[in-house]
């Protein structure tokens, strides 16, 4: 009995976040200044910088992650995203200007359909881009999902959620996460999301009613439950059939302290302290996640294709527009 326990403990790999609020604040303030001075054009470079910092300060088993994305790549996506947004909004504009109701309705309809399709396309692009640009010990992640699957999953889930007056929402969220996470490769290891829609539904139901009854206090425990549901259902499968599971130990009380603290920071710094809230949040969550099981940190093998700077053109679906 004791030996198995010890063995299990030996297999635990922990995540850590070593970023400091003051460092991240300095980065973000420079980012913000440059973004303002360039009237927003610097934004992709700013985003790349902050992601590079946050990844570099997130460690698994003592080795940090590396974000390889560059401002230039993101700029292309940014411009594309901007183009899509402008064309979507011009539809609304035409709708507002048109005198014939039929044309107005048509344009509004086109706008809604456009937004509905844009979300899964952006999710797909983000997964592809983020995973391909993430590495750990030199091993890149990758995304094998198909765009058509993502769009189908999203649209079907969306309409079922609407038709069931939101009840299907929990299953929809799980389906979407499965679509996203099951297609992630980490070298020769792959991820699985094993959460169940019914569990999420119960969490939501309980969270909603208890939050109302406790005048919102339960909300922090609700958030904790959601976090556990999202993290604890992620499984890492390795080539040899062994697997390990993520485990998050955040308590409701810690979520409460974090949230209340963050609100005070934002209020009293008039928003300037937002970078501090990011590092606080990341350090609470990351430092409480461990990977338990038979994860062999030395056994990952590079499986991703090389990408070079010319490739981002073919990543036309990359649209980092902050949907998530």
């Amino acid at each position: 009995m004791t030996t198995t326990l010890l063995e299990k403990e030996k297999q635990t790999k922990s995540f850590t976040f070593t970023g400091r609020g003051s460092d991240y604040f300095a980065i973000e303030i420079v980012n913000f200044l440059l973004t303002v001075v360039t009237l927003g054009l610097y934004y992709p470079w700013a985003k790349a910088k902050s992601l590079q910092y946050l990844y570099r300060k997130t460690e698994l088993a003592g080795t940090p992650f590396v974000f390889h994305g560059t401002g230039k790549e993101m700029f292309v996506g940014f411009i594309k995203g901007l183009g899509v947004f402008i064309s979507l909004y011009s539809m609304l504009f035409f709708a507002a200007l048109s005198t014939t109701p039929f044309i107005s309705v048509l344009f509004v309809f086109a706008f809604i359909v456009g937004v509905l399709i844009l979300i899964p396309v952006a999710l797909h692009g983000m997964m592809r881009y983020r995973t391909s640009r993430t590495s750990w010990r030199g091993i890149h992640m990758g995304y094998r999902g198909e765009l058509s699957d993502m769009v189908t999953t999203y649209l079907v889930g969306f309409f079922l959620t609407v038709f069931t007056l939101g009840i299907y929402g929990s299953w929809f969220v799980v389906k979407l996460r499965k679509q996203m996470i099951d297609n992630v490769r980490f070298g020769n290891a792959s991820l699985r999301y094993v959460g169940d829609g019914a569990d999420l539904f119960l969490i939501n139901l309980k969270g909603y009613f208890l939050s109302v009854f406790t005048l919102g206090i339960y909300f922090f425990w609700f958030t904790k439950n959601l976090l556990h549901f999202y993290v604890n259902n992620i499984v890492v499968l390795q080539d040899d059939g062994t697997y390990s599971r993520l485990k998050c130990h955040v308590s409701g009380w810690e979520v409460l302290k974090l949230t209340v603290g963050n609100i005070f920071i934002v209020l009293f710094t008039l928003g300037l302290g937002i970078p501090l809230t990011t590092t606080r949040t990341l350090s609470l969550i990351m430092n409480s996640i461990v990977m338990s099981g038979d994860f062999d940190a030395d056994a990952l093998v590079q499986t991703e294709e090389a990408y070079d700077s010319a490739m981002y053109e073919s990543m036309s679906d990359m649209m980092d527009i902050g949907v998530i």
């Binding site: 590079q52 910092y53 570099r56 300060k57 590396v66 010990r137 030199g138 890149h140 090389a306 070079d308």
Partner: peptide
């Protein structure tokens, strides 16, 4: 950039070699 106690260096084209 952003090194702390650990210094991480990467080298060459994909797949990059690295040292820490």
């Amino acid at each position: 950039e952003f090194n702390d106690a650990t210094t991480l260096l990467r080298y060459g084209k994909f797949p990059q070699q690295s040292i820490s």
